[in-house]
Design a binder for these strands. Sequence first.
DNA 1: ATCCATGCAAAGTGTTTGCAGGTGG
DNA 2: CCACCTGCAAACACTTTGCATGGAT
Lengths: 147, 147
Amino acid sequence: MNNLSVTEKFAEVFHHAGVKLTHQRLTILEETMERRDHPSAEMIFRSVRNRLPTVSLDTVYRTLWLLDDLGLVAALAPEQERIRFDTDPSPHHHFVCTRCGDISDFTDPRFDRLQPPEAVESLGKAERVQVEFRGLCASCQKKPVSQ
Amino acid sequence: MNNLSVTEKFAEVFHHAGVKLTHQRLTILEETMERRDHPSAEMIFRSVRNRLPTVSLDTVYRTLWLLDDLGLVAALAPEQERIRFDTDPSPHHHFVCTRCGDISDFTDPRFDRLQPPEAVESLGKAERVQVEFRGLCASCQKKPVSQ
DNA sequence: ATCCATGCAAAGTGTTTGCAGGTGG
DNA sequence: CCACCTGCAAACACTTTGCATGGAT
């Protein structure tokens, strides 16, 4: 019964946003939500294809960005963003704008001293810690609706 | 005199790594280190081109990855890594392997409650915080020298 | 003199877009 | 039934690679 209510919740989110819940989208959503790694579009594409052999990669991309818009998944980099380099070797932290992708630095000694919890010890050897706040940057807040 | 010693320090790092400090590399390094934004390869390419009109984009790429290897800059995504999606809507944090790029989740209520310092308030409206530990994951530690 | 690095061009990869036909609400 | 969505293919953008020349130690 939990399954049912989860699907219903999805349906409601879709309905509220005024987008159609096609069976491609539902399949992509299901395959996506059941993962606990951090899959690329390609990885999701492969698992969706097992259930829906005719689905296309571009539909997976479009659907993932849709889910990102709806807040059901979180993209780990803003759309169309390419690799960037951090040129500041001293310890600092980031504020990332979820709309324009701009990354700003700030410093806070409290954060520099954060120690990895036990859970991390088993994952690997932590050499560096960085705190990331995400939200709308000042300049994107000023133009609320514009693209 | 500080300028001089900084350049000397670079020269020493290069020498110690057994790579040549060509004037292309020095120019790229200088243009890179003087930025405090988070430039893409293309952005660095444009500023280097002002001083060195014949430099090619692929040299900039190769040099940036070299600087990353030397620890002089930090790439904000592992090499060849494409966009990934976080499918877990609940609050959690990341351990990122700097070699293979694998992202693992862990939870820690202490981190969920971190408040943005004043410096962040002026940058934008923080909606979410995520702590990221970086280092070698357990499986990469086991194969220390491998490709 | 030798090896490494560069520039060029082409290939490669991941991602987006235009369009015609199909489908959900 | 109409607008939205899909699949296909082509376009696109960013990044990497092969190779021959040039340059540094």
